[in-house]
């Protein structure tokens, strides 16, 4: 079932972002920031955790999943280290994607030219 919900939830989140983009004066960057912040808030309430359980990658692959991952990481770090975890947590959980993007970005800059 997760395979069905992944498509539906991932698609719906993207369609919702598109709706916001097309019916407001927000730029794409504003919409993306809004969605990552919304993901963090929904992560704080526990709703996003429930969504990930049902939809798997459908909830974790779109950008709100990134906000959720940061919040989850912070929660775990706070449990381990106390208040300092607010500062150290989150980046480890999200770090794989970020560091991959940095490394691939640098590699692509060396290999590809724009308008390839």
């Amino acid at each position: 079932m997760t395979f069905v919900w992944a498509f539906v939830v991932g698609g719906l989140l993207c369609a919702l972002a598109q709706l916001l983009l097309d019916t407001s004066n927000l730029t794409p960057a504003h919409v993306l920031v809004l969605f990552v912040v919304a993901g963090a808030l929904a992560g704080g309430t526990g709703w996003y955790h429930a969504l990930v359980k049902v939809a798997g990658a459908g909830a974790s692959v779109p950008l709100p999943g990134f906000g959720y991952t940061l919040v989850k990481g912070i929660g775990e770090a706070v449990q381990e280290k106390g208040a300092w975890g607010l500062f150290t947590g989150g980046l480890e959980a999200a770090g794989g994607g970020i560091k991959a993007a940095v490394l691939f970005g640098l590699a692509a800059a060396l290999v590809f030219r724009p308008r390839a």
Partner: peptide, 20 residues
């Protein structure tokens, strides 16, 4: 736009689900 966003967003998530 909504149809394309849903379809492509869903498809990318689906690929993610298979990888996971």
């Amino acid at each position: 736009n909504l149809a394309w966003a849903f379809g492509v967003g869903g498809a990318i998530s689906e690929v993610g689900q298979w990888v996971q």
